[in-house]
Amino acid sequence: MTTASADAHGHHGDHGHDHPEHLAHHFDTLEQQFDSCKLGMWAFLLTEVLFFSGLFVAYATLRANNPEIFSLAASFLDTKWGAINTVVLLISSFTAAMSVRNAQLGETSKLKANLIITLLCAGAFMGIKYVEYSHKWHAGLLPPGLENSMFNPENPWVPEAAHHDIDYLKLQAEVNVMTPEERVHTMTTLGRFFGVYFFLTGLHGVHVLIGIGVITWVLFRANRGEFGPDNFTAVDLTALYWHLVDLVWIFLFPLLYLIA
């Protein structure tokens, strides 16, 4: 703590005299160390943006060429769950930002509380994803390659009467009035929509799971009292990662759920 105060007051001169506890030997100052970590994290976040962009572009090209089929597809998603998940993720982003503040100020118990709330929100998000995915699994709203997909062009799945057939009946009413060419095109494109849907939300979900792992690790370290004004880089970078997960969802929610 004393080193932190010394460093905060005169970080240009006295680093050689008392080596701060958290300074790695290959850095001159805590400031240089912190800046290097941040630069590395931002470089990683850029690659994440580009990583997700492939799927966003797949979505955009499919949608731009078939806008009306995409509105039909979105009507099979539940806006209520999407909106609840948005709120849950925004709250978790807030608590992540708060935990950075707590770490900077050395408020360990508040830091732990905010990290735990962030974890609970992440868990709630995945729980809601599970509810949504299991509904789609039972209703056959799946990528066309899967055996129990109603969009499988070789052997389409057909539900039992009065058993997971609500979405199927709605789709049947929509496409059975079409010409065969139109119906094939619509069913193929709907299958692609659900392919993009599962890949985009699935990749996002994997990021949430990784985030849960990293936040848990930070929580363990916070519990050991490791973080304070001169050592909060791990909390800061974890929060940056978590905000990126939030950013992706901010775009996914209106694009997938709100186009009906």
């Binding site: 539900p159 039992e160 009946l169 496409v175 060419e181 094939v184």
Partner: peptide, 23 residues
């Protein structure tokens, strides 16, 4: 579009969707 119209006959969706299977 031209290709998918040519391929229409090879897809199960050339026929209307079946009714749900009776229990």
């Amino acid at each position: 579009r031209a290709y998918s119209i040519d391929e229409t006959a090879n897809s199960a969706f050339a026929a209307p969707l079946q009714d749900p299977i009776p229990h």
